[in-house]
Design a protein around this nucleic acid. Sequence first.
DNA 1: CTTGGCACTCGGACGCGGGGAGTGCCAGTC
DNA 2: GACTGGCACTCCCCGCGTCCGAGTGCCAAG
Lengths: 340, 340
Amino acid sequence: MVEDRKLDVLRAIVEDYVSTNEPVGSKALVERHRLGVSPATIRNDMAALEEEGYITQPHTSAGRVPTDKGYRLFVDKLSSVKPLSAPERRAIEGFLGGAVGLDDVVNRTVRLLAQLTRQVAVVQYPSLSRSAVRHLELVGLSETRVMVVLITDSGRVEQRIVELPGVVAEEDLGELRARFNARISGHPLADAPMLLAALPDAVAPEIRPNVTAILATVLETLVEHVDERVVMAGTANLARSTALDFPGSIHPVLEALEEHVVLLRLFGESGDRDVHVSIGGENPHEGLHTASIVSTGYGTEGTPFASLGIVGPTRMDYPGTMGAVRAVARYVGQILAESG
Amino acid sequence: MVEDRKLDVLRAIVEDYVSTNEPVGSKALVERHRLGVSPATIRNDMAALEEEGYITQPHTSAGRVPTDKGYRLFVDKLSSVKPLSAPERRAIEGFLGGAVGLDDVVNRTVRLLAQLTRQVAVVQYPSLSRSAVRHLELVGLSETRVMVVLITDSGRVEQRIVELPGVVAEEDLGELRARFNARISGHPLADAPMLLAALPDAVAPEIRPNVTAILATVLETLVEHVDERVVMAGTANLARSTALDFPGSIHPVLEALEEHVVLLRLFGESGDRDVHVSIGGENPHEGLHTASIVSTGYGTEGTPFASLGIVGPTRMDYPGTMGAVRAVARYVGQILAESG
DNA sequence: CTTGGCACTCGGACGCGGGGAGTGCCAGTC
DNA sequence: GACTGGCACTCCCCGCGTCCGAGTGCCAAG
């Protein structure tokens, strides 16, 4: 069947182009792959593929290069996620296993991912909004200042300082701490406003203004804090890319990477449990039109905490990268579940 | 006096080269600066300057470019730190003033610095070792697990999870918390080991193994935790640089920037209160031989917490950059002092 | 010490031609 | 109808020679 061979040709073009970084011609193709036909035949297929928009030539009489559409077909139909080798898995396990604390887990993860994929790695901190409260601590700093420390079940810690309208006694603070925790400990952060709404009414009127002030800060920390944090590593890998990968320069890409808010939206799209790929122009952000994103959610089974993934040139080893991203996400989820 | 004019010439060369990014010739020099002499005279001076190693020519019959040594002389003797304009100061104040919490302060600072200098900005988190303990919190997660949360007077929070050898009761935890805080609260972290050494002996023998385990983790968090954190912004600014600025590519520079440990050592050198400049080859790290670092310490008066600064090409506006770095450091110190 | 003049050097831009990789098309074969 | 060999064509890349101009170093004179 002819259609089948055409797809074989596309696959071969993608694979060759990814590994050689040079437009691939019909002759080289039959030499490197056992296609069983002559270059002339391949040329016909290539003309058809070009007609359909899967490949293109940088200039007349040059080889072909996959288009975004070509990569898309390759990722969707022509390739499968490549599992990591046993040594690689062990290396991941060993490297992540030694982590102490959430910060350390996240930092190690992002470096590992950057090294494994040789791309720019991005890891989102476990999101506050999807976590549950583990403990809320109130620390009196002075008579009129309190530090609020929120600990989530993903191990994340947030703190705020509150200036109180009046003086607060240490015992009151202890009581408040107990009341807060009784109401929200173990509950998802999103439920907190509802659970805490009646709190000021339950305390003595004298300290009510203080309680209201603290409550406001707690709610702000819990809910309004959408400033999700991300960490990044491997930006140097971008500079390895050639002029072919990023026609203009890597400048717009670096700029896009600095807009963490944008990145988060892109990564958030990853369909939670599966590896998601966004290729070149599919990308909503202008600066990333020459780049691809491979991302996935991670977290304990059933409840993804956040996303992680990589950003690289559209010309990348998708099967391998997807395998690495998936594997790392799984291990991180596991580690967090164990230590959480 | 001839020596004076030679220095004027060097200053003019540095200024012109920084602004035009092109080797500067004798003719252009007399046109742009009122030196009061002819190009031929300038040529003699330039020859002398080259002889002494302050400038060099990329190739015969090209203009001159400052060497690292030339920049060094310029920074030390021929320029003064340029104070920011009033609007700039107000902008800084406004931008940093709106910060909530330490993370926010640090993040805003690094972005501000990157924008102000148009270079890569680096900010070190307030160092643990130079801070004092504000509060130590022990949170029971389960019967045999405790989370240790350490809060320093710079607002930084560190947490660890401890697996206990035995079961611990909630009251014991409360007592321990009180004992810990009584001993170390308000004291520099560095003093903690000494202050806590006798703690296990002071508690009931039944819970001694647990106390020992917790103590070990606390000490680890307090002291051994040299993994100082840094944040970075503005890496995209590197890509603005031309091939002249980074002869090879920006790759080694980006790589060096990823080695946070190396960066920290470099920034740590900054003589605490004053702005420190390290130019090109002066830099111990190979990858940064084509880059310059402008850094300074920041913190409350008398006790610097940590360092911040920028990394850029040797061809940079030193007076302006030094002014920005100094101004930002001062404001951050101020903000931290207020909220601390 | 400064200056104008002058020969010299060298890199960058431009134009040109050959070589080669790769293509599209066509006619012939199975 | 699918495949193949042959062939003309296109266009990039590379090396070469040329030209131009900016900038220099040197020298002799003021």
